[in-house]
Amino acid sequence: MKTQYRNILLFTGIFLAGILLFFLNVLLGSVSIPAGDVFNIFFGGDVEKASWATIIIDSRLPMALTAVLAGSALSVSGLLMQTLFRNPLAGPSVLGVSSGASLGVAMVTLLAGGVLSEMLLINNVSIIIAAFAGAGGVIFVLLFLAPRVGNNIVLLIIGLMIGYAVSSIVNVLQFFSSDHDLQAYILWGLGSFSKVGWQNMVYFSGIVIAGLVAAILLMKPLNMILLGDNYAFNLGLNMRKARLLVISVAGILAAIVTAFCGPIAFIGIAVPHIVRNLFKSNNHRVICPAVILCGGVFALLVSLLSRLPGSMGALPVNAISSLIGAPIVVWVIFRNRNREVA
């Protein structure tokens, strides 16, 4: 009963922090807009500058929403991978899904004017489609191999190898690319929450929310997997089917975020650790919803910090997420170790 009370308190606290961070994300940016004007923009009062409404409604608001969804999606994807492989270092990128997306983007940005030039138009949409196709290709290969490979460790190694192989192809493409094309590719690789915008929000949020719901539905089999393959089997779980489902959901969540926001590295590995330590639980009925919540809040924090420094634009999301995430994870783990000793 006591842990339940504690969990409700934690959920409420993190949720409120998330709301606060969401408002700060809308309120703060490189152009300073007074809070009163921000209020007026939402509730129909007079605004000093017309451009401010555009900045708030069309730039900051979709960016904050994207951060929440992307953070949740990556974190859940990471959690599923960590549970499936019983490996604390697993993350959304571990099966080569983000590498697959990178290869897709590299094909479009770096091979433009070459092989793909007649078929594709280099713009937002083609980059998203290419990334999703690349990630989807890797997921497809994994789903094909998974039933044929009994051991999860072997599957993990295959995933890592796919990742290495695909990255090498990207390297070769980079080597032969002009600096303009390279820059386009690097821009994508830095990660950004700003490219979804309202025009793509329907697709992005639709797929992410579907994936999150699927993850919630997987809570029970995930708990069984945690007990070990033999236990899971004895409890009546169809291990093969469960494994395919987990890989599909985790893969699609990672793929959609990578396609729209670039390869955002750290969130997926870090948030499940933070959650497990905060909630002191391995029960997916608790940590799965908690990871969804914390992932969104963590991404909001990252998004806010990456746009704070002074007047100039934004720092890459990728850099900030690792920069603030790494110490947090180390701190959380250390704190728990010390308690165990004490």
Partner: peptide, 8 residues
């Protein structure tokens, strides 16, 4: 790119 500044 400072998108907000350009909008302003």
């Amino acid at each position: 790119l400072n998108e907000e500044l350009i909008l302003e």
